[in-house]
Simulated assay, not measured.
Amino acid sequence: MRPSATRAASARRDGAEPAPRLHPWAKALVAALAALLPIATPSLAGDRALIDFIGFSPDFRYFAFEEFGIQDGSGFAYANLYVVDLSRDDWVAGTPIRVRADDERRPLAAIRAEAAAGAAGHLAELGIDVPVEVAALIGDGVPDIDAKSLVFGAPGYQPGAVLDRHALALATFETAAASPCADWFGTAPLGFALTLSGEGTETLLHRDAALPRSRGCPLDYRLYGVVMPFTAPVAAHAVAIISVYPGGFEGPDRRFLAVPLGR
């Protein structure tokens, strides 16, 4: 998913096509969520999406994750499942899979299960079953941190051991957007730039130009974490996860962007 791209591919499948076999991750998710279906989902203020890391393909070219939550304003549950071609920094054709309830009474568990079923064919076709190693994470409950920098390395086998130390630096700046952000929120939208440094080098991984309509009107960005394939925990196959905060009905919302660290 190139963060500055404007793609919203349809996830609709032909009715005559046979249903895909569920990916193991999807089977586990559907089973777990089915148990929660009878539980009513309360209306929440704001919209802070959560994230679930699904995995990598065996050649580490593809990475999948899900963001999900309760939409502010409407109170409708939603789930967006992204499959990223890391070599192209772009979404795989036919994704993301986006599912949103049209009624507050339809629970988040059902929406997530529907998104998992819709993505099952893509995950199976690309063999996305390599577990995710979380190399670094800035949790939402960590206070007094601006989350604009993050030092990380490949996890070692001894307690606290870290290999190949690197650092990410996130910068924000005013830019143009497809949406009338100044009219809606009284402020210019923000873009971001991400830089990777380590071993005496510094690489600009991404810098926004004009923002796509799908990004909305970002008010801020924060580094959320770095993930790697479990079988190859090195920076060349790592992905930076960035929280983006577009303006919403009840304050800033939170969504996620994935930026590959090596291509």
Score class of each variant (00 low, 15 high):
F152M: 13
L44S: 10
V244N: 05
C181D: 00
V151H: 02
L170I: 03
G94H: 11
A31G: 06
F249M: 09
E199N: 09
H166T: 05
P107I: 00
R2S: 14
D144A: 13
L163W: 03
T231P: 05
P20G: 13
A116F: 03
V83T: 14
D183H: 15
V83P: 08
L163Y: 09
A154I: 01
L223Q: 07
A176T: 09
F230R: 15
E199D: 13
D89T: 10
R255L: 12
E199A: 15
H166R: 11
I138G: 03
E125T: 02
R2I: 13
R207P: 03
P20A: 06
F230D: 15
H23L: 08
V134S: 05
H122I: 12
A167Q: 06
V239I: 08
P24E: 11
A169L: 11
V162I: 15
L204K: 07
H166E: 14
E66Y: 00
R254M: 05
Q158N: 14
L205Y: 04
T195H: 01
A45R: 15
Y245F: 13
F53N: 12
D102S: 09
L219M: 09
E250Y: 07
S87C: 08
G73L: 05
T201W: 13
Y245W: 08
A210K: 09
Y78K: 03
E133I: 10
F185G: 02
G75L: 13
S197M: 11
L194Y: 02
A188G: 06
A32V: 10
A154Q: 01
G262H: 02
F68R: 15
A28Q: 12
A147I: 03
A11M: 08
R7F: 14
P229G: 01
A79E: 01
G141E: 10
